[in-house]
Design a protein around this nucleic acid. Structure first.
Ligand code: FES
Ligand code: FES
Lengths: 143, 143
DNA sequence: ATTATAATATGATAAATATCATATTTAAGA
DNA sequence: TCTTAAATATGATATTTATCATATTATAAT
């Protein structure tokens, strides 16, 4: 459903959301392992997200990545959109230019409600909330 | 959400479902254009589906592809599964080996209901039904 | 039987994703 | 100010997915 890049981005950001803050930055080498993503790859992804201001970073000694309070207010949908331009969920399942009821593809009726619900939730769920669940052990990050 | 291969497969099969039958076979070159998929590519996909008995074919003059009455009873889910082994919808959004409530990933709670509904519908919707909608002009095939 | 037609099998090329590697820049601390 | 530690920028390689091309096999019609 998501590309590896998106999955990796979500995992890394949630890891940061749960275990970092401005006074507790985390280095690439300490992120890559716990979320089980190649170091150089997650570096590239986080650098991209940093450029787009979805995560915060500081270089040099004592530097690293972290989520600011502001970053924590972000939602999953924005994150997904940031790493892969188009939106694989809201777009038409069969690649019509627009997904809407007035010109529905063959799968539209069967899927649009679920797609809408999912989109809605991805937009309203903040990173902070998900991080909370993680810290409480209610959820896990793969591998 | 789906790969091009899956989208192409669905489009081709629904086209056949709507406009072919045993006494009215359709050749590759007459399928590729209306569904707007590269000819050699859709050929490869249909050949694969034919091998797996999800579509029917006959070679030589007057040959071509078509859906038998039996093929028409197939559902979209089986089609998707046939062209891409793993199931992008039912599998865990963050790649846990199993998607289930007892060991949920961070996105599980927010998505599992919708994933289940979608899966359910993909399984219970037959090609015949979708073809009917197409023929009645209720739905369209992209491009 | 021979010919023409259409799928089939197979392999080659191109484009997109994912992964790896490294030189450069910024900032902390001695 | 010098050294060291970290992100940043950039590019190279590998893998997967998509696309293109063609020789082979089966079958209908003559
Ligand atoms: S038009 Fe295709 S999913 Fe809505
Ligand atoms: S466990 Fe990840 S989606 Fe269910």
């Amino acid at each position: 459903m998501f590309s590896n890049t998106v999955k990796y981005a979500i995992k890394a950001v949630l890891y940061l959301a749960a275990y970092s803050d401005e006074s507790n930055k985390i280095m690439i080498k300490d992120i890559a392992n716990p979320i089980n993503v190649p170091m150089a790859y997650i570096a590239k992804i986080l650098q991209d997200l940093s450029r787009k201001n979805l995560v915060s970073s500081k270089r040099g000694p004592k530097g690293g990545f972290y989520l600011s309070d502001n970053n924590l207010k972000g939602n999953v949908h924005d994150l997904i959109e940031a790493v892969e331009g188009d939106d694989r969920i809201s777009s038409c399942l069969l690649s019509l230019s627009e997904c809407n009821a007035s010109n529905p593809c063959s799968l539209h009726d069967l899927a649009y409600k679920e797609k809408q619900f999912l989109m809605q939730k991805l937009k309203e769920t903040t990173l902070k909330t998900l991080a909370q669940d993680l810290k409480e052990g209610k959820t896990v990050l793969p591998l």
